[in-house]
Amino acid sequence: MVRDPTADVLHGTSVIDAVKAADISRILAVPDLHTSAGLLARIADDPTLQLIRVCKEDETIGISAGLSYGSIRSICLFQYTGFLFAMNAIRAVAVEQSMPICMMIGLLGKEPGVAPIESSRFGVRIIEPILDQLGIEHHLIESDTDVGAIQPAIEAAYRNHRPTALLIGRRPI
């Protein structure tokens, strides 16, 4: 049996290409070790994306909402701990006010090939159930074969005025 060489690797460039294909122009980010080198550093070096570095994760939710009123699409990039921190902003602005907030959440410490719900890390295990309770659609982006889900998820979020979550399950390279 021939193993799919893209099944166990996630390239930051693949993620960035998918994000650009969805007309994202702004990345609102708090650094996360999980996505630091493979994704955030590449975004910072990309002249076609504007990176806005913020101090706390809930700021990204407000800024992204404001940008959406000018038809500017953005991604909120942070670690799952930041997602937990920003919970009230996500609840109020993204969910209750039906805003197209697109979150890219690094699952630091998730074991590759293991479903988030089965991770040995408590913080990782609770992310999908919380998203389910909030009614936020989510997609696990674990390898290059999953990257195809990114553009449709973002397009749907902006079309339907609702949030979406892209869970980065493996450290991008």
Binding site: I61, G62, I63, G66, L67, S71, N88
Partner: peptide, 17 residues
């Protein structure tokens, strides 16, 4: 609904407009 975020909303709006 999310106390503290007015300036963040405003920042996004200022960039967009």
């Amino acid at each position: 609904g999310a106390m503290g975020l007015a300036s963040s909303h405003g920042l996004g709006l200022a960039i967009a407009h």
